[in-house]
Amino acid sequence: MSTTPHTSAGATAPRPARDPSRLDVMVSQILRSPLTLAGLVIVAIILVLVILAPVFATHNPDAIDLRARLAAPSLTHFFGTDEVGRDLYSRVIYGGRQSIAVGFFVVFVAGSIGALLGAFSGLAGGKVDTVIMRFMDVILSIPSLVLIMALAAALGPSLVNAALAIALVRIPSYVRLARGQTLLVREMPYLMAARIYRASTWHQLRWHVLPNIMSPITVQLTLDLGNTILLASALSFIGLGAQQPTAEWGAMVATGRNYILDQWWYSAFPGLAILVTATAFNLVGDGLRDFLDPKQKAR
Rank of each mutant, 00 (worst) to 15 (best):
M1Q: 14
G10N: 15
P14W: 09
D24I: 03
T36A: 12
A38C: 09
G39I: 05
L40M: 10
A44Y: 03
A44N: 01
I45T: 08
V50R: 14
I51W: 09
V55K: 04
I64P: 02
I64C: 05
D65I: 10
R67I: 15
R69C: 07
A72Y: 10
L75Q: 12
L75I: 11
T76S: 15
H77V: 13
F79I: 11
G80M: 10
T81K: 01
T81C: 02
D82C: 01
V84Q: 02
G85D: 14
R86E: 04
Y89A: 15
S90I: 00
R91S: 11
G95P: 07
G96D: 14
R97N: 05
I100H: 03
V107L: 06
A110V: 10
I113Y: 10
G114P: 08
L117N: 06
G118Q: 10
G118H: 02
F120R: 08
F120Q: 08
G122M: 06
G122W: 00
A124G: 11
G125C: 12
G125M: 08
T130E: 04
V131G: 07
V131L: 13
V131A: 06
R134F: 02
I142E: 09
I142M: 06
S144P: 10
V146K: 04
L147V: 08
I148C: 10
L151E: 06
L151H: 09
A152F: 02
L155V: 07
A162C: 06
A163Q: 01
A165H: 05
A167N: 03
R170G: 15
R170M: 14
R170N: 15
I171D: 06
V175P: 13
Q181E: 00
P189S: 04
A199K: 15
H208F: 07
L210Y: 13
N212T: 06
N212Y: 08
T218K: 01
V219I: 07
Q220E: 11
Q220R: 13
T222C: 07
L225P: 07
L225E: 09
T228C: 12
T228M: 04
S236E: 12
S236R: 05
Q243L: 01
Q244L: 12
A247S: 04
G250Q: 01
V253F: 01
V253T: 06
A254F: 11
Q263T: 08
W264V: 13
W265H: 11
A268W: 13
L275E: 04
V276C: 13
T277F: 05
T277L: 04
A278R: 11
A278V: 13
V284D: 00
V284H: 02
G287E: 00
R289A: 12
F291Q: 10
L292Q: 02
L292S: 06
D293R: 03
D293P: 04
K295N: 14
Q296H: 09
K297C: 03
K297R: 12
